[in-house]
């Protein structure tokens, strides 16, 4: 591990303690759409024509570990976190590009324009010719890991702090972005 190992482990442990289902001492809030008997817990609704019952089916992933909008959900969100990138970068730009397109990983394309891809989002900054900005790897790494360090109201997901991407995946993304001529 290149980032301070102890603090990462400590953070992972605290995150698990705070954000796991056991964080609810007496079961899930009553307004959660969950079924404790299914693997993913989270449910999605299925409207059945000409029926007075609303069906619920398992959703493709468990969303209970993260804070919700329920008033009964008193779990804290993860605070912004500054990290130090230890060089060398050792990222794989090919893997990075795949992560940038993957729905359940980076999915950068939903907000950012990237070369060779149509229907890109326009919410985020242009990433075409990213290399020309000559941003240090450490800055790009921090931006992806947790951009709230630079901008407290950033809408960019804190990929590292929230555990969406691991350290190597963020290194791959940095390598991909730094390769864009």
């Amino acid at each position: 591990m290149r980032i301070c190992t102890r603090f990462l482990c400590l953070f992972a442990f605290i995150s698990t303690a705070w954000l796991s289902p056991s964080a609810f001492s007496s079961g899930f809030p009553t307004d959660f759409a969950v079924d404790p008997s299914v693997v993913n817990l989270t449910l999605e609704p299925k409207v059945v024509v000409n029926s007075g019952k609303l069906e619920w089916v398992p959703f493709s992933r468990d969303l209970t570990p993260w804070v919700s909008l329920s008033y009964a959900d008193k779990r804290p969100a993860a605070k912004p976190r500054q990290v130090k990138l230890v060089e060398p970068l050792q990222g794989d730009p090919v893997r990075g590009r795949a992560l940038a397109m993957a729905r359940d990983k980076g999915y950068c394309i939903v907000c950012h324009q990237l070369p060779g891809e149509q229907w890109a989002g326009t919410v985020g900054a242009l990433l075409l010719s990213f290399k020309k900005h000559k941003y240090p790897d450490e800055l790009v790494f921090q931006q992806i890991f947790d951009s709230r360090v630079f901008n407290p109201i950033s809408v960019m997901p804190p990929y590292g702090t929230f555990g969406i991407l691991n350290e190597q995946e963020i290194r791959d993304l940095v390598a991909y972005l730094q390769s864009l001529d």
Partner: peptide, 20 residues
């Protein structure tokens, strides 16, 4: 709202919940 929550990877609530 449930669809919005699912799309933004947030645990959805039941219809009629106070937050909704």
């Amino acid at each position: 709202f449930v669809e919005c929550n699912l799309a933004t990877r947030t645990q959805p609530l039941k219809p009629g919940s106070q937050a909704y």
